[in-house]
Amino acid sequence: MTPPEPGPRPISSPVSSPAPGPASWSAASGPGSPPGPPAGGEPPSGLRPPRHPVDGRAIGWWTGQALVLVAPPVLVLLLLGLLIPPARFWLLLPALVLAVPGLVYTLVMPRVRHRVHRWEITDDAVYTASGWIWHKWRVAPMSRIQTVDTVRGPIQQIFGLAGVIVTTASAAGAIKINGIDRVLAAELAERLTARTQAVPEDAA
């Protein structure tokens, strides 16, 4: 995998400014990612999309995930259908019924997601957009971040990708930035950790 060039860079300043050096964060997007398409999935007119798209390789990753989900049942049914001639029709029919929407899912979902999924980290908050049919925009302030983890699933590893998981005290779930270059992910996690230590944690 091609590691991105940026070296360690101090976070701009602890002063609350909504936009940090945008160049600094976008430069880190890595060479593997194509220039992000403009407004990903058009958020509600009032909410602007987060600044950075996910890596272009994420399309491959999501395709892989979709295949892992769709392929095994279809292949098993196909195989059984070929091996058991008397039941062929009743095995190949469900295989077809599964395969057609599965194929559409495998082809469409990754591309839609790639247009929608975006992320941004300012000095004060983490902001992400995700989803493909149901869209979600999430904001968590730096002062409420509890832990910052990186994850690399098996398929993500194949594509040299990783994710950053930012948890807050809420039981509603962590904020995830998935499908970014793994070197970038490590760097983001490091900076987020440093940044959350710099920002005093709010009570509660």
């Binding site: 149901w134 302030p141 509660a204």
Partner: peptide, 13 residues
């Protein structure tokens, strides 16, 4: 209000 630690905006088709 001081206990709010983030927002999630969701939208279905």
């Amino acid at each position: 209000r001081t206990s709010i630690i983030g927002w999630t905006v969701g939208r279905s088709p």
